[in-house]
């Protein structure tokens, strides 16, 4: 079985969803979603295209109002827009024509929501520099953000999201446009940050495998329903078959997990692994 990382000690609840339903254009996108996340956990939000990952993250951020159910941050009900949540959206391509250096964008993470002109200070510049180092972006700190590569922009956006010291960091498919190595680097970076800064990381992806070594918890999303727990608790044929509403097999090969639609469901698609791996 897969090696599981022990859950961090002294857990307190950072985020709790209670029976969240979301209906959009007469369709049920999220179906009675409930789970809790603790301090410093590294959580994978796994689901295939259209499963509802982005919608779920938007609900947590307060950008999408749930049709029913509650979202609790710490002990408080979530208010719209919140400095205690950092967010890196899916496909956040930055315009190359915007005259902002990487360090300027990180600076906007400190006070971009305030009115009035920015005030420079040595303390502010120091905090920005430190954050740029923490994500390994110091080499292109003075380049225009829009001219950086996708992976470089990703790091700058992570720094932007983290500099206000949120308790929860949401990333929507941060690995989507990265090659395997850059993806690995981002995962290691996030794992280190989750530990050092006691930030809970919730990261969406359609591929489980790159996250297996770092995940404390998985939130598995299929057809708007969620199963949450450790990988071993969730990624099992019984649990996933119930989630998908038809039979699903879970294959473990060379330390990798393949989730495959079983016979009788009509299509033999893989649900969370690249098809080539199954055929080959």
């Amino acid at each position: 079985m897969t090696a599981e990382r022990p859950a961090p000690p002294e857990q307190s609840v950072v985020l709790a969803l209670e029976a969240v339903d979301v209906w959009l254009s007469g369709r049920r996108i999220l179906d009675s979603v409930s789970f809790e996340l603790g301090t410093g956990e590294f959580v994978g939000l796994i689901g295939s295209n259209g499963a509802g990952k982005t919608t779920l993250l938007r609900v947590i951020l307060g950008l999408q109002r749930p049709t029913s159910g509650r979202v609790l941050l710490g002990d408080e009900a979530r208010s719209r827009g919140n400095r205690s949540i950092g967010y890196v959206p899916q496909k956040a391509l930055l315009d190359p024509d915007v005259p902002l250096r990487a360090r300027d964008l990180v600076g906007l993470g400190i006070d971009g929501d305030r009115f009035g002109m920015p005030r420079r200070s040595a303390k502010r510049a120091g905090a920005i520099e430190e954050m740029l180092h923490a994500v390994g972006a110091q080499h292109y700190a003075d380049a225009r953000v829009g001219e950086l590569s996708g992976g470089e922009q990703q790091r700058v956006l992570i720094a932007h999201a983290l500099i206000s010291r949120p308790r929860l960091l949401l990333l929507d498919e941060p690995l989507a446009n990265l090659d395997i190595r850059s993806g690995q680097e981002i995962i290691e970076l996030l794992e280190r940050i989750a530990k050092e800064q006691a930030v809970t990381v919730l990261l969406s992806a359609h591929e489980i495998n790159p996250l297996l070594p770092v995940m404390n918890r998985i939130v598995y999303l299929a057809a708007g329903r969620v199963a949450s727990g450790t990988t071993d608790e969730v990624v099992r044929p019984e649990v996933l078959s119930k989630l998908y509403g038809h039979h699903v097999d879970v294959l473990r090969v060379h330390g990798r997990i393949l989730v495959v639609s079983g016979p009788g469901s009509g299509d033999e698609e893989t649900l969370s692994a690249s098809p080539a791996l199954v055929v080959g």
Partner: peptide, 23 residues
């Protein structure tokens, strides 16, 4: 313009990031 400078800049870069910050 000076008053809305920073929120305007952030929402010009990416509206979702800006909204998530409560702008």
């Amino acid at each position: 313009l000076g008053f809305i400078y920073r929120p305007l800049l952030l929402s010009s870069i990416n509206t979702d990031i800006a909204r998530a910050r409560g702008i």
